[in-house]
Amino acid sequence: MYRYTRHYQGPIEAVIFDWAGTLVDFGSFAPTQVLIDAFAGFGIEVSLAEARLPMGLAKWDHIAALGRQAGVAQRWQAKFGRAISRDDVDALYAAFMPLQIAKVGQYSRPIPGAIELLAALRARGVKIGSCSGYPRAVMDRLLPFAAEQGIAPDHAVATDDLKPGGRPGPWMALANVIELGVQEVAACVKVDDTVPGIAEGLAAGMWTVGLSLSGNEVGLSLDELQATPVAEREALKARAEAKLYAAGAHYVVDTIAELPQALAAIEQRLARGERP
């Protein structure tokens, strides 16, 4: 029977994962490349680096933030003679959605180590949640594809499932807590490759683990990363780690394959009565 204690000292109850750049899609290309394609349909060139800056936000918010970036805003002004408006964001979002639905599976191969990690967590009785900046229509396309590849969390929340909205607020992470029946939020770990995703976990009162090499902050495919000279790769890793730690991550590891070491450290701190 569950007993409330002032300082929880038990094991991790649940891990809440992001999707692109965390469980699937090494380098997080599905969201960024499709955003580039959507803007191109309006005659606006957007670079991959520009598209990555707001990563982690809900996709409507991502488009709006991208349209406000200095370079993109200047190009929009030059082409249309005015700043990007809410109606423009709606139109871009409407163009983005069918492209994202059509292409999400193309990019969403499991990240090495993800399948094995989920199996190990399940064997320990740890509940597996997930949430994403993807809207529900995209998640409904992604989930069966991911399940066929061996990635099947116990629960998945899309950014438009909840009225309050998505990241950096805590709502998607906390919706997992409710659905999974977790009794101690302090026994939950949020794993993400973006700053808004780390902020989400912190706002929800969870431990947070950032992923440096597999996600948006480095933004290279696995093949590209492996072909990168060691010194350059280490510099990219250090920059990503610094950004995720600055966002408040309790731990940062390279990819999901290295997550067990961070989870072990968190459980040691829980055993001492520490909280996130």
Rank of each mutant, 00 (worst) to 15 (best):
Y2N: 12
H7Q: 15
Q9V: 13
Q9K: 13
I16F: 01
F17S: 01
D25I: 12
G27W: 01
T32W: 00
Q33R: 15
L35A: 15
L35R: 05
I44H: 02
E45N: 14
A49E: 15
E50S: 10
R52G: 01
P54D: 10
M55Y: 02
G56P: 04
K59P: 02
W60Y: 13
D61M: 03
I63T: 08
L66H: 03
G67A: 06
R68D: 11
R68A: 15
G81R: 09
S85D: 11
D88P: 04
D90V: 04
D90I: 10
A91K: 07
L92W: 01
A95C: 13
Q100M: 15
I101M: 15
K103N: 12
V104P: 03
G105T: 08
Y107I: 05
R109N: 09
P110F: 00
G113A: 04
I115W: 00
A123L: 09
V126F: 04
G129H: 07
G133V: 09
L142I: 08
L143S: 15
A146V: 08
A147T: 15
G150I: 12
G150V: 09
G150S: 12
A152K: 11
A152I: 12
D161R: 09
D161Q: 10
L162Y: 05
L162P: 01
L162K: 04
P164K: 11
G165D: 03
P168E: 09
P168T: 10
G169C: 06
W171C: 00
M172V: 04
A175V: 09
V177C: 06
E179R: 11
G181V: 13
G181F: 09
Q183M: 11
E184K: 13
V185N: 06
C188Q: 05
V189C: 02
P196F: 03
V209F: 02
S214P: 05
N216Y: 11
N216M: 11
S221V: 05
D223W: 02
Q226M: 09
T228I: 10
A231Y: 02
A231H: 11
A235H: 14
A235P: 04
K237N: 11
E241W: 04
K243F: 00
A247K: 00
V252P: 02
T255H: 02
I256G: 07
A257Q: 08
L259R: 05
Q261T: 14
L263D: 00
A265Q: 08
E267M: 04
R269M: 06
